[in-house]
Write a protein that binds this DNA or RNA. Sequence first.
DNA 1: AAAATAGGTTACAAAAAAGTAACTGGTTGC
DNA 2: GCAACCAGTTACTTTTTTGTAACCTATTTT
Lengths: 119, 119
Amino acid sequence: MGKMEFHTDITRQRKALDPCFEPCPIERGMRVIGGKWTGSILWHLKDHPVRFNDLARQLGGASKKVLNDRLKQMEENKLIKREVISTKPFAVCYEITDFGRTALDFLEALKDWSLEHRI
Amino acid sequence: MGKMEFHTDITRQRKALDPCFEPCPIERGMRVIGGKWTGSILWHLKDHPVRFNDLARQLGGASKKVLNDRLKQMEENKLIKREVISTKPFAVCYEITDFGRTALDFLEALKDWSLEHRI
DNA sequence: AAAATAGGTTACAAAAAAGTAACTGGTTGC
DNA sequence: GCAACCAGTTACTTTTTTGTAACCTATTTT
């Protein structure tokens, strides 16, 4: 009935062989690249920069807010770069960075894996 | 700045070139492999099956509930297999499936990417 | 002048994920 | 016979993520 508080008897406690208290590299990588839409956005930018509303249309399903949140996060993580072009009606372009490009192989592998296993 | 290719330019094209209404393979793959702890769990199982509480200790940080939820989901997705060994004090082992194994290359690539870029 | 476009922002609601603590029911070792 | 182990389950609560809709400033087309 009573709660089992942690007694001083450590002798019988089993220890983990290799506990990972910190998120491991896999977890950390997933946080950067695994967010919803992140992969898709990067994929859409791989050939050329894309403008905000075009991206919104291409990713039919992501709202402007979500898209905007994600773009900001991706910019912070240096996966993409936001560029304002001061033409008469100003335009904004999002383009993939060199760093962002380093994730493409990996995303392609994921894409192939998904298709291969009909996920 | 170089080339500035707008694929939908200042021409009034209000249609997306290739809208993806369905989640694309990258998104779908992420849903299977990208959940919190999923990658780590698979990684811990790659060499040999591991028992529930050992896994819990190794992944110091995941509660039993979360671990259990994740294991069930991973079993549903056929990434792992739950096996009950009916010894006197019964034991439960989680082991990676052949399918789960197909994701390891990809996870290793992610791990290397994270380490390489100090993520 | 009205409507539509660009590139967002804001306030709020809903849903999903994650975490906490207690509890179960059986077993083993002391 | 009590504590600790195994492998969870249950009942919540908290946090995070995601989505909806309206709004904004400025320009441009009809």
